[in-house]
């Protein structure tokens, strides 16, 4: 499985995260998204005419959408992540995979505006981002009341992987995450999963590791 990847992209990171959690082997091809604009190069547009990342190639298959890539990696390497336990869980996974597009269009855009100087209506992006975070918070509160700790049910699924990165990275786009206690506990639960990997802006839970010994001069 070849992943056309950019280290600062939340949508690329969610593929790397799922691969790490499921033990899937990825071959990473770094795309110089910024400042090089390699996603607009003729060579890249030949692979994905839309000029978006991530892109996955596996044998004759080319996937240009992060929800599709997540679904494929899970089906190949960790089918439990598809969340097929019940019709309700399956529907919730579909719901949050679609919802993640709203996160990209709000928090994602605010972030590329602030970090990479990409054009955006920053006020509208931040307002929409706050609305997204409020909806995730409300959903997590409801799931907790019904006895579940994750977005689609009582265990982590693609729903959580799809929505986790933007929920953590919102401050990069000037959107505070201070006001969401359920999101805080949920993102901690995801960061505690065995095999979890980091990206810039999303660090592991240092509290789970023993204190390192003093560095000797």
């Amino acid at each position: 499985m070849i992943l056309y990847d950019y280290v600062l992209s939340p949508d690329c990171y969610k593929i790397r995260l799922l691969a790490a959690l499921t033990g899937a082997k990825l071959t990473l091809r770094a795309v110089d998204f910024h400042p090089g604009g390699e996603h607009r190069s003729p060579a890249f547009l030949a692979i994905n005419p839309a000029g978006t990342i991530p892109v996955m190639q596996d044998a004759s298959l080319t996937l240009t959408d992060s929800a599709a890539i997540l679904t494929y990696v899970a089906a190949r390497s960790g089918p439990a992540w598809l969340g097929d336990d019940t019709p309700e869980m399956r529907a919730r996974v579909a719901l949050w995979l679609a919802f993640a597009q709203r996160l990209s269009a709000s928090i994602g855009k605010a972030r590329t505006h602030d970090m990479l100087q990409k054009p955006a209506d920053i006020v509208a992006c931040r307002k929409a981002g706050v609305q997204c975070l409020r909806e995730i918070e409300a959903a997590l509160v409801e799931r907790h009341l019904m006895g579940d700790a994750f977005l689609a049910g009582n265990r982590p699924t693609l729903a959580d992987i799809a929505c986790f990165p933007h929920s953590m990275l919102a401050p990069d786009g000037g959107i505070s995450v201070d006001a969401y206690p359920a999101i805080r506990l949920w993102t901690r639960a995801i960061r505690a999963l065995p095999g979890f990997v980091e990206m810039p802006g999303i660090h592991r839970l240092h509290d789970l590791k023993p204190e390192p010994a003093g560095v000797q001069a």
Partner: peptide, 14 residues
């Protein structure tokens, strides 16, 4: 400032 439940052990919040 918070519900006790939302400040689990090892959690810090502003």
């Amino acid at each position: 400032v918070a519900l006790s439940r939302d400040l689990a052990p090892l959690v810090v919040m502003p």
